[in-house]
Amino acid sequence: MNEISLHILDIAQNSIRAGASKISIQFIRDSINKLYEFRVKDNGSGIDEKTLKTVTDPFTTTRKHRKVGLGLSLLEQSTKQSLGDMKILSFINKGTTVYASFNYESIDSLPVGDLTSVITILITTDRNINVIFEAISDSQIFSLSTEDILNEIGDDIPLGHIDVVSFVKDLINNELVELQIYG
């Protein structure tokens, strides 16, 4: 995992597996505190208290077909090396929020990476999972959700249709560049 974006993709996968129907993803560039921050919030199954205590342990996983779960452990490592922070808040049957921050002036900090592709992939994953994306750069904001897209394309065209996906990708890219999210 060598980009912040890839961590977002990975964390959001956990939300999908937790059966979430709504996933909010916030990406913030805070030029005052020199931070990149993201928050992934879902309404999925949540994590029980016992698991939550050891959730960043690489040998903690709820999967049956392999014995390791590296996602959150790697995120913890990445935020630490970037002089940032990570928090997980979770309530069983209510949902989970993962927050992470990265000091972008730290020499070991991760680059943002290809946020456009990651958000495109997530937002067009499933018409039953409403992914709500917000990018905030100081005081400017851009938002787009799966629902916004479905409102335009209707019921009879697949959300993952290649033309829809590449349209959404161009759109997000233009907006993120305008927001100067990459610095």
């Binding site: 897209i149 335009e152 394309i153 065209i157 033309d163 829809v164 349209f167």
Partner: peptide, 13 residues
């Protein structure tokens, strides 16, 4: 420009 998606929709359809 999200509205442009509607045009695209017609084409795909």
């Amino acid at each position: 420009s999200l509205a442009e998606l509607k045009k695209l929709r017609e084409r795909i359809k």
